[in-house]
Amino acid sequence: MQTQSQTTLYTSGHQGTESEFGRLAESCGIKEIHYSWATRDIERSHAMEVLDAATLAKGDVSMEIVSKRMGRSYSKVDTIRKVMQLLFHTINHGHQVFAVGWIQEDGTVKGGTGWGVELAKFFNRPLSVYDQKAMEWFTWQQSQWVKDCPVIGHSTFAATGTRHLSEEGKAAIADLFARSFKK
């Protein structure tokens, strides 16, 4: 079990899931880093690290690849490209990854959150998703989702997820922190 002072959370500081992870991390004394770009408005800006265009570009990927992998197309390509780039940096820095959203029948996760989940799979990171429809945690094991009760077990972890965080989702994140950092 990690101690809070040895642990760092990486997110992009967006409202909903990422802000909730940030608030809980702060209350536990966990270091936070929230990636953003210069003109982006985020909810948790106190530990914001603004990435310049060259750094953001290191996380660039063809939107055609993203659309094909996720089985959907995206509007507002310029903005979504930056979001995908931020997700690359977030997931790349966190050894363990947590997400909140909706697991779809094809095994992907709905929305932009889904790209962060796919990156975690590509990077072979320990990955858990709280599915707000099933109201349960699932961990990616042997190329499938398995019901689980995960804990934060690494010194760096990343969080991504829906802006539309339910009360059950908030409770699931709080329980994750309570299991991981017993006082």
Rank of each mutant, 00 (worst) to 15 (best):
148 D>I: 02
130 Y>A: 05
4 Q>H: 11
178 A>M: 10
63 M>N: 07
92 N>T: 02
180 S>W: 11
80 I>W: 03
120 A>V: 08
51 L>H: 06
106 D>R: 03
28 C>F: 13
99 A>W: 01
107 G>Y: 01
168 E>M: 14
76 K>A: 09
93 H>G: 04
147 K>N: 11
83 V>A: 08
32 E>A: 12
178 A>Y: 05
52 D>H: 12
95 H>M: 05
155 S>D: 09
112 G>K: 08
104 Q>C: 07
142 Q>W: 04
105 E>I: 06
149 C>G: 04
1 M>E: 13
107 G>L: 06
151 V>N: 12
11 T>F: 01
5 S>P: 03
90 T>L: 01
76 K>Y: 09
39 T>F: 11
97 V>Y: 03
177 F>S: 11
10 Y>H: 08
154 H>L: 11
7 T>Q: 09
35 Y>H: 08
64 E>H: 12
29 G>E: 12
33 I>C: 04
67 S>L: 00
11 T>N: 05
4 Q>E: 13
23 R>D: 02
78 D>G: 03
175 D>Q: 15
109 V>I: 06
30 I>T: 12
13 G>L: 03
70 M>L: 14
73 S>M: 06
75 S>M: 05
95 H>R: 12
121 K>H: 09
42 I>T: 10
147 K>M: 10
37 W>G: 03
146 V>Q: 15
53 A>D: 14
104 Q>T: 10
67 S>N: 09
137 W>M: 09
121 K>F: 09
174 A>H: 10
32 E>W: 06
114 G>N: 10
35 Y>M: 02
39 T>S: 15
91 I>F: 01
153 G>K: 15
168 E>C: 13
161 G>L: 11
104 Q>G: 04
26 E>W: 09
162 T>R: 14
179 R>E: 08
164 H>M: 15
83 V>G: 00
87 L>W: 00
83 V>P: 00
95 H>A: 04
34 H>L: 00
21 F>M: 04
150 P>T: 14
151 V>A: 10
40 R>N: 11
181 F>P: 00
155 S>G: 05
67 S>P: 00
157 F>E: 09
39 T>E: 14
74 Y>T: 07
148 D>M: 06
43 E>P: 03
96 Q>H: 06
13 G>F: 01
111 G>E: 04
183 K>N: 07
106 D>S: 04
49 E>Y: 08
178 A>P: 00
96 Q>K: 07
125 R>I: 03
88 F>S: 02
153 G>T: 14
164 H>Q: 15
10 Y>C: 02
114 G>H: 10
149 C>I: 07
131 D>R: 05
177 F>H: 13
140 W>R: 04
69 R>L: 05
86 L>A: 01
12 S>V: 04
149 C>K: 14
121 K>D: 10
132 Q>C: 10
62 S>N: 06
98 F>K: 05
179 R>P: 00
54 A>W: 10
154 H>T: 14
72 R>G: 01
55 T>N: 02
30 I>E: 08
129 V>L: 08
180 S>Q: 12
139 T>M: 08
25 A>Q: 11
114 G>R: 08
